[in-house]
């Protein structure tokens, strides 16, 4: 699904509110101890201040760079089955399995 603008207008970095920190933590599926939130607020705000320096750079017309090596393109793999059933080995690291399935608390749809 394609929805929602992700490229909305930038906002000036400011001190993050408690609520913002809680929202980020939720998106990242982290549970912050309530007592630790002010420290995260402070840490993240100073990090954002610090990276806010980037605003000074003149980047009009400069395309973003996502790979360090210029000009490389994706190599393609031949469509061949090269893997076999290794479920038993791979599930040795799994915290909870039954009948070959990975188990999680009930998912409500």
């Amino acid at each position: 699904m394609i929805s929602g603008p992700i490229h909305a207008a930038p906002e000036a970095p400011m001190a993050l509110t408690r609520e913002q920190v809680e929202n980020i933590a939720h998106l990242a599926r982290l549970e912050l101890e309530p007592a630790a939130i002010p420290r995260f607020q402070q840490n993240l705000s100073s990090i954002l201040d610090f990276i806010g320096e980037l605003e000074r750079a003149e980047t009009a017309g400069v395309p973003p760079m996502s790979h360090p090596l210029p000009g490389l393109t994706q190599r393609l793999r031949a469509d061949a089955v090269t893997e076999s059933d290794e479920r038993e080995l791979y599930q040795r690291n799994a915290p909870q399995v039954a009948a070959g399935l990975y188990l999680v608390p009930k998912v409500i749809e």
């Binding site: 909870q96 399935l101 998912v107």
Partner: peptide
């Protein structure tokens, strides 16, 4: 995700 017969759990087949 498979919900049948696993009680309070959901099974994941990847």
């Amino acid at each position: 995700s498979l919900h049948e017969g696993l009680g309070a759990l959901t099974g994941i087949d990847l």
